[in-house]
């Protein structure tokens, strides 16, 4: 791991690492609201079947996860817990913000208790719009994230800009 941190990884090795990382994403499901059910449909239902993309949706704890899907409304009361969960995940870690509420507050843009976007708390890699997004949209978000992982250099992990699906 010293090589990765020094930022001087040989290119074939980077590609090999990225290839293996992108097809073994362990997703922690942070289901918060309506989107959680669509996420459940995408992850647990036979119709959408996320495992064909090399995504394993059942880690028991954020400590085993590479990716967290924040799906649903983040409230000010919940925000510290979201931050805490994110801090517990091991690097390199990725975040998909699913649904309008997690992206920007959505229909609750003027509420007194809703956080206007999860990106105020944690960095987000992929935004999936929709209220709620269809399971297919979440799958596309995951595919885009995988493309990004495939291209990325571990050392430059945090230098990129977020992707927007759709």
């Amino acid at each position: 791991m010293g090589l990765v941190e020094s930022g001087k990884l040989p290119k074939p090795l980077t590609q090999l690492l990225s290839l293996s990382r992108k097809y073994s994403l362990w997703v922690y499901q942070w289901g918060l609201a309506c989107c959680a059910i669509e996420m459940g449909s995408a992850f647990a239902s036979p119709r959408y079947d996320v495992m064909r993309l090399g995504v394993i949706p059942f880690p028991a704890s954020p400590r085993q996860a590479d990716l967290v899907v924040i799906s649903g409304t983040v409230t000010d009361k919940m925000a510290p817990a979201v931050k805490r969960l994110y801090d517990q995940m091991p690097d390199p870690k990725y975040v998909i913000s699913m649904g309008s509420c997690a992206n920007c507050g959505g229909p609750y843009w003027d509420s007194y208790s809703v956080t206007k976007g999860v990106d105020q708390i944690i960095p987000v890699d992929v935004y999936v719009p929709g209220c709620p997004p269809r399971p297919e949209a979440l799958l596309e978000g995951i595919v885009l994230l995988q493309e990004r992982i495939g291209r990325e250099d571990m050392a430059e992990r945090w230098k990129g800009d977020p992707i927007v699906v759709g």
């Binding site: 649903g72 409230t75 009361k77 003027d110 809703v114």
Partner: peptide
Amino acid sequence: PGYMHRGYEKLCEV
């Protein structure tokens, strides 16, 4: 409860 409180009753007034 309250981790999902979105303030519906107030928002309905606007």
